[in-house]
Design a binder for these strands. Structure first.
Length: 164
DNA sequence: ATCGTCATATGAA
DNA sequence: TTCATATGACGAT
């Protein structure tokens, strides 16, 4: 079950690593120090299609544009609450931001603001699930699992001003 | 304006 | 149950 297939995604900002389960894209890693030597033995036709879509989407987001199409996401690793939050993040258009409390209201749990932050932190698919477009209520940047530098860069690229 | 403190939901140990 | 959070609101400085 936990046998994920990993494929490298080359972008102008580095090589991301996409992990696919049988249900879809299960995780996406930011470029690290890992070299691009990933062995990919048996890639099904479905995964090849997902990979194409994923690559296109990732490149779009890195370039500050909206992803036109997303691959199926395998969010089974998260709790139902987390999945609810992640799903909500999906609706945030490129170039716009929401606050943690806005997200909380959107899922009918206006007081679960901190929990929303926690869900963002465990988001397995950054960029495609735009957790970087979630700021604190006062416009502060908050935090980011993949590194604050990334969050800043992505927002700047999308034309969003962030307050220090 | 900045800082400390508390409230409140959720998840992990 | 206890602890930690990528928050938010409020009051004291």
């Amino acid at each position: 079950m936990s046998n994920l297939i990993s494929l490298p995604i080359k972008t102008a900002s580095g090589v991301f690593l996409a992990h696919y389960s049988e249900a879809g894209l299960a995780a996406l890693d930011f470029p690290k120090s890992h070299s691009t030597r990933i062995i990919t033995p048996k890639v099904t036709a479905a995964i090849r299609a997902w990979y194409t879509t994923t690559t296109r989407a990732v490149k779009a987001v890195v370039a500050g544009k909206a992803a036109t199409e997303l691959p199926p996401l395998d969010l089974s690793s998260g709790t139902s609450f987390q999945q609810r939050v992640w799903e909500e993040l999906l609706w945030i258009p490129a170039g716009e931001t929401r606050s943690y409390s806005e997200i909380a209201k959107a899922i009918s749990k206006p007081k679960a603001v901190r929990a929303v932050g926690g869900a963002c932190g465990t988001n397995p698919v950054p960029l495609l699930i735009p957790c970087h477009r979630v700021l604190a209520a006062n416009g502060k940047i908050g935090g980011f699992s993949g590194g604050l530098e990334w969050k800043r860069r992505l927002l700047t690229t999308e034309g969003t001003a962030v307050r220090s």
